[in-house]
């Protein structure tokens, strides 16, 4: 069995806007594509934020690539941080930069030795498959929600992370673009090992590429397994999330 990329060990955290608590004991193997699915306020986004080291658990431990987020603080989390790409519900493209410069920023900041030509080539290689090439010189305020999200996903993959955390990656995307995004993630996973954890609030074709589905309800895992196996074990009230 391969090494766990992400491990939630007896994690407990309060869910904002809900009396329930997130209780998670989950291990995600390196290279797996895992989708967390469930209704709003079930703890999907919180799990993503904890895996990204943004929110500490009230108890328990969150390990990502062998690193306990509780053991690192602030700026010291740099080396681990660069191995994890994250896109939250609010993607956070910098509003004073064009899409091109936004996607370029991680390279410009962390890879000073690269030539400008190499960097431009790297950015174009990210924008092209996501259908963003013609929008490269637009500012975030001039983009649609789905375009912003795709731009943020491209940016999060610029440093070739080992783990990709996506919170609601299909929000604002039309049906075609969901398939484009799915193909893009699949292609990236074929190129090099990439663990993908995505949180979704409804069924989407994006789920079909997942190795594993974890269904959450009120902070608890109610079903866990492949798309086929989860379909038969998930409570009937949640069946529409996986079918």
């Amino acid at each position: 069995m391969s090494e766990a990329a992400i491990r939630f060990t007896q994690v407990r955290a309060s869910l904002a806007g809900s009396p329930s608590h997130l209780q998670l004991d989950l291990q995600i193997e390196a290279g797996q594509f895992v989708v967390l699915v469930g209704p709003s306020r079930s703890g999907k986004s919180l799990a993503i934020e904890m895996a990204a080291g943004l929110v500490p658990p009230q108890s328990g431990k969150v390990m990502v690539l062998g690193q306990d987020w509780n053991a690192v603080e602030g700026a010291d989390d740099g080396p681990v941080r660069l191995r994890v790409g994250t896109v939250l519900q609010q993607p956070g493209l910098l509003s004073n930069m064009t899409l091109f410069n936004n996607v370029l920023l991680p390279l410009r900041y962390h890879c000073g030795a690269m030539s400008d030509g190499e960097r431009e080539q790297a950015v174009m290689a990210q924008l092209e498959p996501l259908g963003l090439l013609s929008l490269r010189d637009r500012f975030p305020a001039e983009l649609h929600q789905g375009e912003i999200r795709r731009g943020a996903i491209a940016r999060s993959l610029m440093l070739e992370p080992e783990v990709l955390l996506l919170d609601d990656p299909v929000a604002g995307l039309d049906a075609d673009m969901v398939l484009v995004l799915k193909q893009y993630v699949d292609a990236r996973r074929q190129q090099r090992p990439l663990t993908v954890v995505a949180a979704l609030r409804s069924f989407s074709p994006f789920i079909e590429g997942a190795d594993r589905l974890v269904v959450l309800q009120e902070g608890r895992v109610v079903a866990d397994g492949s798309l086929e196996s989860v379909g038969s074990t998930v409570p009937s009230a949640l069946r529409r999330y996986v079918e």
Binding site: G78, Q90, G92
Partner: peptide, 21 residues
């Protein structure tokens, strides 16, 4: 505005220290 739109968090997630950048 950067805080509200979570640009500050996005910088942190890219490993770019807020204090330095």
């Amino acid at each position: 505005n950067m805080s509200v739109t979570r640009e500050v968090v996005a910088l942190r997630l890219m490993g770019i220290p807020i204090s330095q950048f």
